[in-house]
Design a protein around this nucleic acid. Structure first.
Lengths: 231, 231
DNA sequence: GAGTGTGAAGGCCTTCACAGCT
DNA sequence: AGCTGTGAAGGCCTTCACACTC
């Protein structure tokens, strides 16, 4: 409902939701900001601000109603009708994505897959129809697909991205190790494993370089609320 | 050499390097900040700051020497000797990672894989020995493994992380959709596909919500240098 | 003129701190 | 006492703007 302007906020919503779902399964009905801040690694104050942005409000000493938060998050994050995505590139990574994620979420359905390998055309891979790249524009347009998942080798990624954008896609999930050039209105989320590996390798060799972040997370995990305790 | 304090800087180094390698292959020997800023989606000024931090300096009108930048980045990002990593969880995702990345980098070698499934113990998967979880502590300690890759289901991820940390790991690459609780000195890089999917789905429905970011990227891509042009 | 090096300024996000509610 | 709601402050990162160099 309310317009979220920040990527970070959307990320946290996603994290909050997972904790909320778990708590609900365990039979809880209310939650406090100092619990929700743990999975996101922020302070209780940040959680309260985020919840405010959702339009929910809590009750001092009684916390927030889990049910209420969940529907507010769903209203914000999830599409009213199921959104469609297409996967381009049915290699090892593409297959793993299909296996792991296809059908897992009601809100984003992988509607079709594309691959240059003719052997795969017409096949049904993990319940998903596989086509040749040349059919991409037609299918994306006909089904009003909004999201494209790029799991092709780096040298073809840009041309695939361009093709997807021209077909009317507005969001890309890019697994290729480069930054795509796309029109302004298209959102790109990069999952750059090369960078991730290099980061973890670097910081594994330079421990405590980011100690501040960690300590905040740790303090929060203790379940106490030191930020709000009067000094 | 120089101490990098910022995660963002490390990420950009990784991106710069890829462009530099490509340029070198194409026969270039020098590069300008307004070229390097494109893949990272920042301004030329940011690039110059980053390069300063590397200890390199350029020549006005002549740019930076690619060779020099590459060795400075390598000296910063890459381990002096090859670093070892272990993979925990040889499911679809783990297999895709092994296939895609094992042996691809000299600087981070996936030394062993672990899985609960006894059928996999003793197997050699994509050139990588597979063991039972119970052997993890011994192998990590014996080989001084610094990096752990967690590709197990969400419900066992925390216990695996704890085990890895106790064995002396200092960096984790976590593919499970939760935030791990680890000691302060351990660095965690989360690759959270659930959040990524939710983000791209959200912003695909809310185009131009982040127009500012995009326009900066676009302007940079034009190859001009508007930030530095005197008004 | 064209590009680098860098102090200063700006922007975004997060946390602090405290008033208010129960 | 305990927790929420929020203005104000702080911090980190990025960009601006311009002196300087070839």
């Amino acid at each position: 409902m309310t317009a979220i302007t920040s990527e970070k906020t959307v990320e946290r919503m996603s994290l909050y939701r997972r904790l909320l779902l778990r708590l609900r399964e365990e039979g809880h009905t209310v939650v406090f900001s100092h619990q929700l801040c743990v999975p996101a690694g922020v302070t209780p104050a940040q959680v309260r601000r985020d919840i405010m942005q959702l339009g929910c409000s809590g009750v001092p000493h009684a916390g927030y109603k889990i049910k209420e938060l969940l529907s507010a998050i769903a209203e914000t994050l999830d599409a009213p009708q199921s959104q469609r995505a297409v996967l381009v590139g049915v290699g090892h990574l593409g297959l793993a994505l299909l296996t792991h994620f296809s059908g897992r979420w009601r809100w984003l359905h992988i509607h079709a897959a594309f691959d240059v390998n003719p052997a795969k055309h017409g096949a049904i891979v993990r319940g998903c129809n596989c086509y040749g790249i040349e059919e991409l524009p037609r299918i994306v347009r006909e089904w009003r697909v909004q999201v494209g998942i790029i799991a092709v080798p780096v040298d073809t990624a840009q041309s695939v991205a361009t093709m997807l954008c021209e077909a009317g896609i507005t969001g890309l999930l890019n697994f290729a190790p480069l930054r795509l050039q796309v029109p302004d209105e298209v959102y790109v989320e990069n999952v750059d494993l090369t960078t991730s590996f290099e980061k973890v390798a670097y910081f594994a060799r330079h421990p405590a370089r980011l100690a501040n972040d960690k300590s905040a997370e740790r303090d929060a995990a203790l379940g106490e609320n030191q930020a709000d305790v009067p000094g």
